[in-house]
């Protein structure tokens, strides 16, 4: 297919400077193909979360180009269509946060149908049908009418994934989705992410979950000081890394 030839996400020469001096991203390039699962590793403060947040413009890149499913936005370009393009990119990308960020005043079901009804203008009935499918898929059908505060961290993150998927995104961004979880709850979230990858979702994940990086990812990238220092298949990165920094970093987290 033609679609397959074009990368789903294309990041070209992206820079991000905070407060006029803190240079967090220094000319990042990244292409992610449809259906690919990419894991970004790196020490804290290396800029990996910032990069992820630049993809859906939660952070404005200072320079460079972001392309998601054919929508291209150049940093610093300010025309009338830009705002709509950003909203379009956000509709095509789902994002899961470290702190879940479910809406506490809504039930689980209301959280999931919020995007489709408010943003896409779907009828509530139609949105509920799909939301229930998603709840079943993440294994939380019985929590349908609970408020998020009643759920465990792992359950909350699974609801957050369902909420993102309700928008039928083309790309899923995971920003350290398991870092705030108790160790015994990590598995249930990683399991959902793994099934998502197997069903062909395009995934970009920042995570320290080594099982996911080693066994699920198609490609692993290591970031340090705002640049890529290494890229390759999980086997290569974990067994035979080229770079000394990679070796040090992996020794720390494994």
């Amino acid at each position: 297919m033609m679609e397959n030839e074009r990368p789903m996400v294309k990041i070209t020469n992206v820079h991000k400077v905070f407060n006029g001096k803190l240079h967090v991203l220094c000319g990042i390039n990244l292409e992610v193909n449809k259906g690919e699962t990419v894991v970004i590793l790196g020490a804290s403060g290396s800029g990996k979360s910032t990069l992820l947040r630049c993809i859906n413009f939660l952070e404005e890149p200072t320079a460079g180009t972001i392309e998601v499913d054919g929508i291209v936005i150049n940093a610093g370009e300010d025309d009338r269509t830009r705002h709509n393009h950003i909203l379009d990119i956000r509709k095509k990308t789902g994002m899961c946060f470290q702190s879940f960020n479910l809406f506490p005043h809504m039930t689980v079901l209301e959280n999931i149908i919020e995007g489709p009804t408010t943003v896409l203008g779907q009828k509530k009935k139609q949105a509920v049908v799909y939301a229930e499918e998603l709840l079943d898929w993440v294994g939380l059908t019985d929590k349908r009418d609970e408020h998020p505060s009643r759920l465990s961290g792992g359950q909350q993150q699974r609801v957050a994934i369902a909420r993102s998927l309700a928008m039928k995104p083309k790309v899923m961004l995971f920003d350290e989705p398991t870092s705030a979880l108790d160790p015994e709850l990590v598995g249930e979230v990683v399991d959902v992410m793994e099934r998502l990858a197997k069903e062909g979702m395009t995934i970009i994940a920042v995570t320290h979950e080594m099982h996911f990086a080693r066994d699920v990812a198609d490609r692993v990238l290591i970031m340090d000081g705002g640049v890529w220092i290494e890229e390759g298949t999980p086997e290569k990165i974990f067994n035979n890394p080229d770079h000394e920094r990679t070796r040090q970093f992996l020794a720390h987290i494994l």
Binding site: T93, N101, R163, S164
Partner: peptide, 25 residues
């Protein structure tokens, strides 16, 4: 701020974010 970010990530504009997410809370 996470609430605003979650709303934005879903594709909500500023008005929808305020009306549906921030103001009720």
């Amino acid at each position: 701020i996470g609430q605003t970010e979650a709303a934005k990530a879903l594709g909500m504009n500023a008005t929808q974010t305020m009306k549906r997410v921030i103001f009720p809370q």
